[in-house]
Nucleic acid binder design. Sequence first.
DNA 1: AATTTCAGCAAACAGTTGTTTACTCAATGG
DNA 2: CCATTGAGTAAACAACTGTTTGCTGAAATT
Lengths: 187, 187
Amino acid sequence: MDAALHLLEHQSFSSLGMREVTREAGMSPAGFYRHFRDLADLGVALVEEALASLHEMVRAAFKEQGEPEELIDHAVRVIADHVREHRAHVRFVARERFGGVAPVREAIAAELERFTEEVAQALAAQPVSAGWGAADVRMVAELYVDHMVLTAAALQQADAETERQITATARRQLRLISVGRRHWVSG
Amino acid sequence: MDAALHLLEHQSFSSLGMREVTREAGMSPAGFYRHFRDLADLGVALVEEALASLHEMVRAAFKEQGEPEELIDHAVRVIADHVREHRAHVRFVARERFGGVAPVREAIAAELERFTEEVAQALAAQPVSAGWGAADVRMVAELYVDHMVLTAAALQQADAETERQITATARRQLRLISVGRRHWVSG
DNA sequence: AATTTCAGCAAACAGTTGTTTACTCAATGG
DNA sequence: CCATTGAGTAAACAACTGTTTGCTGAAATT
């Protein structure tokens, strides 16, 4: 799996060959079948690995409490740190979310759906969501998750200077959403 | 190019072979080189074709005038129509925006950057943006463009029922952003 | 101590890949 | 009307592809 992840730095999953993977891993082609039935099988395993770490991150970002402004700064910092430490995983998820291999795409969608549900529950517990309908809470949760994934995807291919621009913009955008939530009239 | 676009329904660009393309197009392998130096070359050409039509769409969506609520309904309808009529193009852009082929990725990024700039100018001209700093306007433009691309990407792989959910959520999200803009304090 | 499972290997299979070369033939243009 | 160009072809090249088969040796289990 590490070998595959390393190769995926420069190509997308649907162009990955198993001979290529085994060569990178330093084993013979036949050895592959001892671990995975398929290349798609490997892909799904990678999805789980990649989104497990991201799952911890999401939970950590929502555990914090304080002023909205501080929460936003903290969340963006957590995302940037995560990308630096798991660049290959982030790139993989960003690239294959709409990629060419159906099982991988579906595994990512299912995992992100779980995230969204978790975020929705966290949002519903916040005072600002008092009186909100479920559909409205859900809609904000999707906005947050999509924004997080997109920000991570952008960061993953950014140099130091671009990273500062992206995080600055992300903070502003989260503030805008926050303002929108405070003045929202649910119905 | 039509042949390639058709093949890209089930795979991503970096796994496309030129023999595959020429076979689908009904010509001999060598014929490919009469039109493109490279497969990457074909990819860049596809980007331009795909985003040209999208460009018209963006301009059409911003030409309209009226109440914010009506504007949002109109914009979402325009996007949904566009996806129905250019499904292959939309899928291509969504898939390759973070895909494995650098020249294609960069061409998409450059084209989306032009969109964002155009949207930013349109936003700056709206009354609600009076007194806003350039960075804040720009930030909203990026939010809109990203939201549009992501919505289109989601619609492109949705059935009729899912399409209704996606458009309903997208409208809500645009309303939230709209509320945020009205109550924003720029500085 | 004997046996079973695990993770690896080399070799072989028929197909497919990108690219080059030398060629045709119709359309275009002065 | 002749020359040039554009867009196509077939054939050949070595290199690479996914998968199967039968084999090995170590580790784990009984």
